[in-house]
Nucleic acid binder design. Sequence first.
DNA 1: TCAATAATTGACAGAAAGTCAGTAATTCGC
DNA 2: GCGAATTACTGACTTTCTGTCAATTATTGA
Lengths: 248, 248
Amino acid sequence: MDDKLTRKDRERQARSDLFLNIARDVIEKDGYHELSMNRIAEVAEYSKGTIYLHYASREMVLMALCQRGFQAWQDLAKSVLESDLDALDKLFGLSIAHHIYAQLYPVEYDALFLVQASSIREKISDDAHAELTTSIGSLVQAFNDVIKEAIEAGTITLPSDMTAAQLADGLWRLLVRPYAGGQATSVSGAAVQDTGHPGDPALILRTILTGLGGADIAEGAAFAERLTRVRDRLFSDQMAAVRAKSQA
Amino acid sequence: MDDKLTRKDRERQARSDLFLNIARDVIEKDGYHELSMNRIAEVAEYSKGTIYLHYASREMVLMALCQRGFQAWQDLAKSVLESDLDALDKLFGLSIAHHIYAQLYPVEYDALFLVQASSIREKISDDAHAELTTSIGSLVQAFNDVIKEAIEAGTITLPSDMTAAQLADGLWRLLVRPYAGGQATSVSGAAVQDTGHPGDPALILRTILTGLGGADIAEGAAFAERLTRVRDRLFSDQMAAVRAKSQA
DNA sequence: TCAATAATTGACAGAAAGTCAGTAATTCGC
DNA sequence: GCGAATTACTGACTTTCTGTCAATTATTGA
């Protein structure tokens, strides 16, 4: 019964994906304001009505793009969680995973901020919004899990009235930000440069760790060494892809 | 010569302000997607053409709203910087100022995230965007100044390779976030509740301070006491306004 | 082979942005 | 106070998009 929904459904899925790819390409090439249902239809060589059979609105296209991207992000996070690294290494791993995702899927990453902006949020269903919240939540949860693991292992110690969830939320806030894709200006005026490695946010992470885990973890050389080691261990393939991408 | 540009210009300014107020009210009442140039014109009892004489596009209305709001925020920050409090108190003061601004100017605060979303950023001039960046920069700069002051006073100590600007940027990231105006869901899944006082972000601030300033600053009671003291000292009027607003 | 079902189309309605030629009001030199 | 010049205002118009739907074409399975 389950595989009764095969070819037709796979063709349908393939078309959904095609439209989403086109949307992504249009955005990457010409920006969001050039993304229209007409344009997708034109490039896909389908009519507009067909696009609407797959996505109820322009906003839902962005939403779907965002959601599809999350899958890749979650896969990265999963490979961190399922590794045999210790809790602290995993924390670094999640930070690196974020960075890789932002580099490898810039449009999808950017869409995350777009769909959360009020103007778009207002136009999508509560269900769709709830689904997004769930996706975000599952990534914050990954931080949460690793933090708990680190606490249990005694690697870090939280103030008595701070929960793992609160710390996870804080780390999320520090990491996740518009990457100003291709444009120079940082979101804050402090001219934080993206130097091509998990850079400045990691510095703050480090400061938090100074508070929670002691100087021996956060100290310069040890910190950098751990970052490199975890990255090479878990994500050498993806880092190669990042480098390849930045060539082109 | 300077005051030659008086009545006419003030009338013009008054109209610009009127349109902006209407825009804010429309957004507050019916959301962003109900904001149109027609709607502003209608409410203001001017024609659409006149609105366009003041704001070149819908996006520029939002931009202007955002910019006008910054003035109020900067005033709050200024009263912190110019107070005779010590550096650490000022750091708390800036955090409280942010909170008050978000409460008192929810539409303007929200607009900050809206105008930074790619879909809108793409439609405004580079000049307008640069101006916004400058405004944001001046607030981050306030953090920067206070952090430097705190370092000089020996209240906090930074890791050797962390600059004040980096810490300022980090604090900004922790504090400044969509307040999910009126809506329940936090941006992250970690269900951080806004409890009506400078709440959870302060916890992270506290953790950072544990790392940078020692446990005696960040310890529970001392932290809460400082927060209350600074708030009452600098912002008793504004806190009353916040309370009044939450009544209505 | 053909009827039923599914997929696709593109013309259409509606809404909003942004333009601009024309009109009204105001100012200022005299 | 008059008329010319400047400034402010208007709303119909064009364009461009979204989202709909009745009609058309393709596919399937009996």
